[in-house]
Each structure stands twice: as structure tokens, then as C-alpha cells.
Design a protein around this nucleic acid. Structure first.
Lengths: 210, 210
DNA sequence: CCTACAAAGTGAGTGTCGCTTACATATGTA
DNA sequence: TACATATGTAAGCGACACTCACTTTGTAGG
């Protein structure tokens, strides 16, 4: 959470026991509140009104920081994508550079994120709202770049190599598709789904070595 | 669109130039109208009010046929799943039983559906609403069964065989993930995505033969 | 240090929406 | 033909997204 340098007025207000007229950093708190609300009630279940209430401001206040609701969703989605890329990056760097483990660690980080934050994950990918938005696209491409680099390193080729592209994209769709099937578990019934670790392991090998 | 046998009142009303009090088959027309609206404006962009307006009834009429909005979404999702399964089935039966072509035809049918009807595809999978709903799950499992059978036939084993399960699930996640990446194309930029047919072909082989 | 001005808040109001309630009309069956 | 049931309407409630006129606060320049 990004916070501006405090100006002291909040402290003064707290001491005199009333909230300051100016919030301090409403924009950041709104994003965090909306994120939590989406996780609680789903992407469609949250309202700007409720977020305002939780932040302790009037329902008109958010419009000083965001044009409309879709723009809030977009900001939340982009923040999610950054968080996802961070996790992937951390997972990658914890494993040797050209190892298969690095690849599966990246995949696991992706799936873990989807499981931990299914609401935002859906906002990031399942929503119509920000189709073709350049900001969202750029944020998403960062994650893809991490995977491309790892696959390239594993194969000892440039990330732009067509074969690297093909295998990276295969892995991406696998993990992406699996993540979605996990979070709305309306797909294969209990017994009809293979063990997740075995699945990732085997199919990862098939894609990388095949 | 399913229509009940006409009872003649509509015709009589048309001749006397006024609409009949009873609609005829509002439930079916609502589903179709909502389907079209979702495709036009996205899953969140439609309202019961607007669907009612298009159907020429009051905004309270739909509640004689559906409990609430989520139930309409659910019905639309299930109808979509049936349509998807129909397409997959038709595509499968157009190819020899144990052939690889049958598998890729099933996959293509899936992707074609997502591309042709991205709105309902998202309602079917990307929405929080009908999580864990048994009706939706059952409808979804029909599609999965078609794939399981085809993979089983190809490998000459029972659809319940663990290896069949593993490979079928791999193909499913691949195609599912790819479909999502296609419809919100916020992922790999233009040049960074492999050719779709080549991708499906190669990765299909890797999964089936690896 | 004062004074504009910009930034960030408020409160009231508008139109739409989801949904309910009370009531009206059509249909099928005894 | 009468009545139960299915299916429609009209009016209204509370919540929401968003706007507008206004107020409060922080800050930059004379």
C-alpha cells in the first residue's frame, strides 16, 4: 500500500477525537477495501457505496479518484496482476535457473494465487470490462514474460524462439485452465480429476520434453 | 427456440391489433433475450428490466418464471452448456472413433463456441454465481464425458482408467485455458502467441503420445 | 503572512434496477 | 359454468451508480 508522507492532521484529529475532513490516502484505501469486498462477495457483489461506508467517507468521495466503477475494477485488476507477477517472480528465483523445478514453481505460484484470491483472479481474467485495455494488457504481459524467460533458459534458447513460445504458451494455457477449473469447481467431479501435483508434473514434462 | 403449440389467441390478438394478455412462452423468450443481451453487453451489462422491455412484458413478469436474477443466469448457463455439449458431440461423431482427429475436432468445437459466444461462455465458467450448483455441474459433466470417451477410445481403455483421466484432463485444461485467453485477449501480445492450429496439433500429440 | 486556487471532501437529488405486493385476466378441468 | 391455477400488470421500496452545487483543507506565490 502506497502512503503519502503524513501531514499530521490525522493525528491532530485523533487527539481531538474527530476524523479529519481529508482522508489521507483514500485512493489506496478504496482499492484495498474493494479488493477485500470482491473476495468476500464476488466480483459482482460489491458496491461503491459499501466500499465508501467501510472507508468512512461519503458515497460521492470515490468519484474524486476514479471516473466510474469500471475504472475501479480495472485498477483492482491491475494491482492483482502485479501481485501475481511478484509471486511468480519470487517462486522462480527460489529455484535454479534452467531447472524444471523453476517452471513448476512458477505454475504452482499461479495456481496458488488463483486459489487464494479467486475473486480478483476472476476480475483479472473472467471479466468483460477491461477487454483490450492497454494498461491491463501490459500488466498481464509481465507475468507471461517471466514464464517465457524460464522456458527459454530451460531450453537454452532466446525467449523469442518459436519453440520456446509454443511450449511456454502450452504451459500457460494448462495452468490457466486448471486454475479456472479449480476455482469454479463445476467441472470434473471429485473422483474424475487427477491429483494436482502428479498432473502438473507429468504434463509439464510432456510439454517440455515432447 | 422452443415454442409451445400455438393456442390461437396470439393470432386473434394480432388480427384485432392488440397483444394478448398472456405471452405464450415467456420463459423461453426471456432466456433467448437474456442470452442475446449478455452477448451484446456482457454478463454484467444486462438487466431484467431491459429483457422484459424487449419481450414486451412488464418488469415483474419474469418473476413468475424465475425466482431471481441469479436463477436466470443459471438457466442461461445450463442452456449454454447443453449447446456446447451438442457441438462437441456433433464434432466428435464426424470423425473416426479412435482417431486423433476426433480429439482435435472436439477441442476445436470447444474453442469455436467460446469465440462465437464469449458472453455466455463467461457466464458458464467465469461467474461466481452458480458455484457448486448441482444442476450446472451435471450439465458441465456431459461435455467432459464426451472428451473422456474419445480419449478412452483412442487409448483403447476404459474412460475410468487413471491414464485416460490424466490425459483427458490435460487436454481439457489446455483447451479451456486457451479459450479464455482468446476471448479476453489481454494475454500474450499479437506476435507472442503461436499459431492456434499448430499449437493444438502439437500439444495434442504431446499429451496423447507422451 | 495572507490570499488565491486546486484538491478532496459533503449532502442532496436523479434515474435505474432488483424485487415484492396486491390485484387483474386468461386457461384448463371438474 | 365455476373455480383453481397460471400468468400477467401497476405501483412502490430500498439500494445503487453517478452528478451537481457547495464546503473544507492544503499549498504556492506575492
Amino acid at each position: 500500500m502506497i502512503l503519502r508522507a503524513g501531514n499530521g492532521s490525522e493525528i491532530a484529529a485523533a487527539m481531538s477525537n474527530r476524523r479529519p475532513y481529508h482522508h489521507g490516502d483514500l485512493r489506496a484505501q478504496l482499492l484495498e477495501t474493494v479488493r477485500a469486498l470482491i473476495e468476500e462477495k464476488g466480483p459482482d457483489g460489491f458496491s461503491i457505496s459499501e466500499a465508501s461506508r467501510r472507508a468512512g467517507v461519503s458515497s460521492a468521495a470515490p468519484y474524486k479518484h476514479f471516473r466510474d466503477k469500471p475504472e475501479i475494477m480495472k485498477a483492482v485488476a491491475i494491482a492483482g496482476m502485479e501481485r501475481l507477477a511478484d509471486r511468480m517472480e519470487a517462486a522462480a528465483q527460489a529455484k535454479p535457473e534452467a531447472s524444471l523445478e523453476r517452471l513448476s514453481a512458477i505454475g504452482k505460484a499461479y495456481i496458488d494465487f488463483a486459489r487464494a484470491e479467486p475473486g480478483i483472479f476472476r476480475v483479472m481474467f473472467g471479466a468483460t470490462i477491461h477487454d483490450e485495455d492497454p494498461d491491463v494488457q501490459r500488466a498481464g504481459r509481465r507475468s507471461y514474460g517471466i514464464l517465457l524467460d524460464a522456458v527459454g533458459a530451460r531450453l537454452g534458447r532466446e525467449p523469442t524462439d518459436p519453440d520456446v513460445l509454443m511450449r511456454a504458451y502450452s504451459l500457460w494455457t494448462l495452468v490457466h485452465g486448471h486454475s479456472f477449473l479449480v476455482i469454479d469447481d463445476n467441472m470434473p467431479s471429485e473422483g474424475a480429476r487427477p491429483d494436482e501435483d502428479a498432473f502438473l508434473d507429468q504434463v509439464g514434462r510432456q510439454v517440455m520434453d515432447g
